[in-house]
Write a protein that binds this DNA or RNA. Structure first.
Lengths: 151, 151
DNA sequence: ACAATGTCGACCTATTTAGTCGACAATTCG
DNA sequence: CGAATTGTCGACTAAATAGGTCGACATTGT
């Protein structure tokens, strides 16, 4: 329920959302396509989509023509919220966990104060990044990597 | 070998070093005393001290009157280095690991750029904190928690 | 009806974490 | 010297987490 060493959940999950953002406003994208285009194990992706659905980032529809799409505009989805949905708290120390006794910090942890600074800065930065921005950066990189055919 | 979710190693290890800093210039401190005063499992502490010794933070002497002491002045020991000794790389994403192919970043990871920013800032901050400062803060907190007998 | 798709939970394996333990080495002191 | 004290090192283990797979089932378009 805690920790910033991003696991594959955070990585895969964000990849999947970027893929959904890429198709924003179009028809739903299927699990198989997301998995293939972003190199995610298909049956594992299931769990990530389930979590993102629970937390209101994704809407899914069944049956032929079904698939997954963003439940909210990509410009309004903050990376911080997505990651906290997928990974749980991002606190680098257990004693910084949300809901901990904050008034009188753990008596013994000698480095808590530095990590609190770092944690706060990290959350601020992650809150400032939207899915739309992630998509834009992703597109830009794709462009750099796959140069246009017409020189 | 990677990850910033501090494990107990980083926590315990730094506690132990703070205790050593507290006795800087005095005779060596024994494993049992460090463990008791900083609430660390004694036999586990062994491993942490071994690592810190390997990386030149601690010097140990055997026999009666033996124990452990700082190998370098506490003011010259950076928290960043201590943590990297105990935890390995602190990179929040595998693709940011030192020694990774940095020129052409992992093609698929869509959030690498944010995490690189955060990682760099984090390392800068951790590099600016010395063991001496950790000790000073620790003392200050002890003082706040255990008010002096003379009001 | 049936094919395409998503949903959900049980299950599994490898790795990491957080230790414990015991044999051994070095050192001091009497 | 020899006994007591302290550190050193490696093998071992238990529990948790990571990273999945799989199969039964639900829903929906044609």
């Amino acid at each position: 329920m805690a920790g910033v060493r991003l696991s594959t959940k955070g990585d895969y999950g964000v990849r999947a959302l970027i893929e959904l953002a890429l198709h924003e406003g179009e028809c739903p994208v299927q699990r198989a396509e997301i998995a293939a285009r972003r190199q995610i194990p298909e049956s594992y992706l299931d769990h990530l989509l389930a979590q993102l659905r629970r937390d209101g980032f994704v809407r899914s529809t069944r049956g032929p023509g079904g698939g997954h799409e963003l439940a909210r505009p990509s410009a309004e989805v903050r990376l911080l919220d997505v990651l906290e949905s997928l990974e749980g708290s991002l606190a680098p120390l257990a004693c910084l966990e949300d809901g901990e006794d904050h008034s009188e910090q753990h008596v013994i942890c000698g480095q808590q104060w530095v990590w609190r600074e770092i944690y706060d800065a990290m959350r601020l930065r992650l809150a400032a990044v939207t899915l739309a921005e992630l998509l834009a950066r992703d597109r830009e990189r794709q462009r750099r990597l796959a140069p246009s055919y017409s020189i």
